[in-house]
Design a protein around this nucleic acid. Sequence first.
RNA 1: GCCCCCAUCGUCUAGUGGCCUAGGAUACCGGCUUUUCAUGCCGGCGACAGGGGUUCGAGUCCCCUUGGGGGUGCCA
Length: 522
Amino acid sequence: MNTLSPRNSILGVDAYFQGNHPMPAASETVRVRFAPSPTGYLHIGGARTILFNWLVARKAGGCMVLRIEDTDQARHVEDSVQKILDDLRWLGLTWDEGPEAGGDYGPYFQSQRLDIYNQYMQQLLESGRAYYALETPQELNDMREKAKKEHGGFRYPRPNPLPTIEQGQQAKQEGQRVVVRCKMPDEDITVHDSILGDVTLTADQFEDFIIQKGDGYPTYHFACVVDDALMKITHVLRGQEHLMNSHKHVALQRALGFPTPIYGHMPVIFNMDGSKMSKRDKEKAIKAGLAPPEIEVHDFRTAGFLPEAILNFIALLGWSTGDDKETYTLDELTQAFSMERIGKTNAKFDRAKLLSFNTDWAARLPEAKLLERLKDYAAINDLPMQSANDDMLTRLLQACAGFRTFADLQKKIGFLFVQDQAIEYDPKAVKKVLAKNDNAGFSILAQTQTKLESLEHFTKASIEALVKDLCDSLDTKMGNIAQPIRVAVSGSTVSPSIGETLELLGKERTLNRINKCLAILA
RNA sequence: GCCCCCAUCGUCUAGUGGCCUAGGAUACCGGCUUUUCAUGCCGGCGACAGGGGUUCGAGUCCCCUUGGGGGUGCCA
């Protein structure tokens, strides 16, 4: 599946070096990548990054590569690769190469590619495009602080003369932690960004940045450039926070003789208050006694959102077609997508609008799909609902039509999966619906109970007819009869329509619960 | 501090010099539907950050100011 790219030819490379930013030739396979670092769950911003990359690949019939950037030993979180993979699958964003998929350009874990990096590192060292730097972290820190105090900014001063390779290796042998820095060329660098246009940084703004850490691991910049080249990545779509990195990457590509991929730096997603969406927000909210906001994809999954809605919503964060259509399936997105229409402005993540998208998707998703999603929701939250079979769950879906999230659905029908004796009555509901007006609700409930007892066919239709009759004979509104029953059997004022509610529960359990409820009075 | 990016309703956005008395969505407000919660339907409120240019004409082009964001890590 991996055709050899014409970019391998000198001509291709040259074309890239001209900075003309050619679109890949028609014959060239478009290859994009998503490269998360395994520090936790998949962030919602990361989801949009992979979505846009995925769309570019799918649209062009290209290849989606998943690469794990695990070069930071300290921040590595156990299990997070599996968690990221799992949420990606849930979203339906598949990858053609990477963990569990294999591919011709592996390994796809950077921690397993150290030999490769070392080889190119050596090449740079020997060609004089990189050099060993002997400062300790402490020394650098001091320099930085001093510079900050004096003129606000710090730029690593290139040693003169540069330490030789021999000096560097000797220092290493003596047990010193030595880093490698890239020797930046004395020339301006222009990055051609397909979203933002040309961005030029002048030579005096560069510093010799670190490409190999003291522990021997490459830094992000180096590993990323080497891997993108070796994995034949043609398009790099990433967050705008990487814009300033791309000049370093271009410098590295030139030093190594690699082509420069097509770059696109996407706008960033923020909270409604303009702050960064961070998993720390959750801890903060909990400390403040508030419900934690959804930040990672998994949070939305647990909260009962549909992947279809999330994908649709985040696709429209920083991208639009120009027409009024707002509802898109993944296939429709693939059809409609184009990099040219990605915007430049940062977006705020409006959960209220996501909720509206979710409501919409819950109503339009085919039943079988919705059922599958509901089962995932039940499993992930370990809900008693899991015991229900598909027919039952489908009925619940229908009974709750119009629900916003699965969490709302759960709230509405959770009472079905509780033992009759374990029903808890919401005091507010009891007061408002049953106790008010000298226990009017209780008295209606008692009357209804007798009627229900003698009802032979305990179905939605017959129950509704019964309630309607009672309604007429007592000359009262439906609500005055339905609500007391609803509270009696569910404990709360919210449930499906009253006929549906009782039929789902069944005659025996309905009567049990009404009895239990009437006992409150005693 | 220095460097870079960005700027239309509260929010997501359409708009590429005349089609804009600025369109859609969402939120909000009001009404209708309704046995609860939702859904659904109808209506309303609501924006070109400010100032200079260019032009017959500017939301659209240029400059400045302001505001927001990013970078300035042996994080990615």
